[in-house]
């Protein structure tokens, strides 16, 4: 039987008159990456806050690493690391002081803290900035320090709330690489994101959250196939789409289809294979809400 790092059943949370989470069921297998995808205000951060013991749910059960969040809070806290939406670094302290502080708070001795900090600074490419105040760091550096702090004592489950929001493309890709490396070392990662590409690149499974419900869940491929499979797209000389023909994408299937079309269509017709991307999936899954708003 496969073990789950996160098991959520019937989770509800209300803030005032707003039902932020309206019956969430979710399972995250150990060692996998789950992306929580959703528009602003969908409840992503609230869900992460509940999973990381910051907020107590109104109803529902939630097991992290097998421990019940409401009854075994300490055990849960020993199993998790949270990197919140805003870089959780002390801006007045230097990078090294930040790391050492968390090392000491995690039960390492002074000497151990020094060794571990040096190790993490090197790994996250921050060695040259070790004695600079974190407040002077760029967004990408702050995030790297943030992630380094989360790994002071590696925990089996890592929560990342919008880890790459506000980063430039290069820093974002560097962070993606690091997240994938952590996954390859067996850490379960739950991340929230508004970037569809990010979910597509990193996640084994994606849960789309909208209006407090999980409206879809599956691998990136499964979600894409829900919107429809691959199509052959034919465009005329004016670059307008004139035909969309479903295809399996295999060379035989494409050749047969094209041979038939050759007889009917002018030779300047252009051909491309279109594969639904995450944007289309996302819009298809959350558009009902948009309609309601309009």
């Amino acid at each position: 039987m496969r073990k789950y790092a996160v098991e959520i059943q019937g989770l509800y949370k209300r803030f005032g008159s707003q039902q932020v989470l309206d019956g969430i069921d979710l399972k995250v297998p150990e060692g996998s990456v789950l992306a929580l995808l959703g528009p602003n205000g969908a409840g992503k951060t609230t869900l992460v806050n509940i999973m990381s013991t910051l907020v107590t749910p109104d109803a529902g059960t939630l097991l992290i690493n097998g421990y019940d969040v409401s009854r075994e809070r300490q055990k849960v806290q020993q199993s998790i690391s949270l990197t919140g939406q805003f870089a959780a670094v002390d801006e007045v302290l230097t990078a090294e002081e930040n790391l050492r502080m968390i090392c000491r708070l995690s039960g390492l001795t002074g000497a151990e803290a020094r060794i571990r900090s040096t190790e993490l600074l090197a790994y996250f490419d921050l060695a040259s900035a070790r004695s600079k105040r974190a407040g002077t760091f760029s967004g990408g550096m702050k995030r790297r320090l943030d992630l380094a702090i989360s790994l002071v004592v590696p925990k089996p489950v890592l929560f990342l709330d919008e880890p790459t929001t506000g980063l430039d493309t290069r820093s974002r890709r560097a962070l993606w690489d690091m997240i994938l490396q952590l996954k390859s070392q067996g850490i379960t990662i739950v991340l929230t994101t508004q970037y569809l590409e990010e979910a597509d690149q990193l996640a084994d499974r994606i849960a789309v959250l909208d209006g407090g419900h999980i409206v879809a869940e599956g691998s990136p491929e499964e979600l894409k196939s829900r919107v429809g499979g691959e199509v052959l797209e034919l465009r005329n000389a004016e670059d307008e789409v004139i035909h969309r023909i479903p295809t399996s994408g295999s060379i035989g299937d494409v050749a047969n289809t094209l041979q038939e079309l050759m007889r009917q269509l002018p030779t300047e017709t252009r051909v491309g294979i279109h594969r639904p991307n995450m944007d289309e999936v996302f819009i298809a899954l959350t558009e009902k809400k948009m309609e309601e708003i309009v």
Binding site: Q78, M101, R104, L105, S106, G107, L108, E112, I115, R116, E119, L120, Y123, L151, V153, P154, Q181, L182, Q185, G186, I187
Partner: peptide, 21 residues
């Protein structure tokens, strides 16, 4: 690798927590 626990975390005493803060 970086994730390999170098030191197993012990429980942090209140005195240590307090003095760090």
């Amino acid at each position: 690798m970086i994730v390999k626990p170098v030191h197993t975390a012990k429980k942090t005493s209140l005195a240590v927590t307090q003095s760090v803060f």
